[in-house]
Design a protein around this nucleic acid. Sequence first.
DNA 1: CCAAAGATGCGCT
DNA 2: GCGCATCTTTGGG
Length: 237
Amino acid sequence: MLPPPFFDRDARVVARDLLGCVLRRRHGALWLSARIIETEAYLHEERGSHASLGRTPSREALFMRPGTIYMYFSRAGDSFNVSCRGPGNAVLFKSAVPHLDARSGRESLERMAKLNPRRDGGMRDPDRLCSGQTLLCGSLDLKVRRWTGRSFDSDELYVEDVGWSVPEVVQTRRLGIPEGRDEHLLYRYVDAVEARRCTQNPLSKRAWTEGRDYRMLRAGEPDPEIRGSREPPTPRA
DNA sequence: CCAAAGATGCGCT
DNA sequence: GCGCATCTTTGGG
């Protein structure tokens, strides 16, 4: 389980460092696991964030101590966020891929598929089972009422650094932000190796040019969006 | 009521 | 594999 100080950092650093980590969710006797491949950061003082819309009871978790889970329901699905350093700052878990290992085997994958069927009732391609913020929540059975305002705990729900290597990150604009709401900020982070399995592959967009719409970040290379921040990378061990 | 950090299907290339 | 129209479901206004 990631230690609480992991989230007590700039949300953009947390978002990037979450790539390659595994979200674990106990479901009855099974552990459901998904490796994170896409995240977005949202800051209080910026117009794309829910926090910028004001502090209300349903958004209270955004202002609670770093590591607090904030969930909301929108567009027919649940979305999963975690608060970071600074009130109102958070990361959104945007997409993942099912992760198989000693803790989560074939039965876990089958459970995830069953929890998140296609609209027509059929089974989803495992490659796209968690390719979206609400699809991820569906596959892991994460619901607002149960989890918002709560913290991770090793018995039910947590994030683990399994040492997965993410040598290159695609940094892009966030998706679904209306014009005039700081849509230009490059606060979206995608594991370059897994780009084809995220919500919209940033590398296959002909209209996007490197340097303006996206940029490649190699492991250890600082995020140019973060001025004056030279925090050391989180040890992966 | 109706907008919302979305997802899907369809037509096209 | 793209882009856009259409469907979605909840809770805050």
